[in-house]
Amino acid sequence: MALAVNDLSSVAGAAAAVGATFPILADPQHQVAEAYGVYNLLGDQLAAPAVFVIDRDGRMRWSYIGQSSQDRPSAADILTRLP
């Protein structure tokens, strides 16, 4: 959907600015969404919009689970959560 594409564009732009790479992955069997506990939380058989910040030791440092498709933190907010 356009919203996802737009988000991708803006994040990719920021990625380019910092020289990071942004892999785009598909999870059609939703096993990763289930493993992270965000699958079908909104009863739509999709992943809830969610952000997880994981440190290099694999620990969850911060997470945000949106309650609707519009409910997600800004890129600036995410940046403040980085370890």
Binding site: A4, D7, L8, S10, V11, G13, A14, A15, A17, V18, G19, A20, T21, F22, P23, I24, L25, A26, D27, P28, H30, V32, A33, L46, A47, R56, A75, A76, L79, T80, L82
Partner: peptide, 22 residues
């Protein structure tokens, strides 16, 4: 937007965003 990312003082090279598209 880009300025904010830089201003965030990212240990930037170490950060990778991963987008999961369902």
């Amino acid at each position: 937007m880009m300025a904010k990312w830089k201003a965030g003082g990212l240990a930037a090279a170490a950060v990778v965003a991963l987008l999961l598209l369902f």
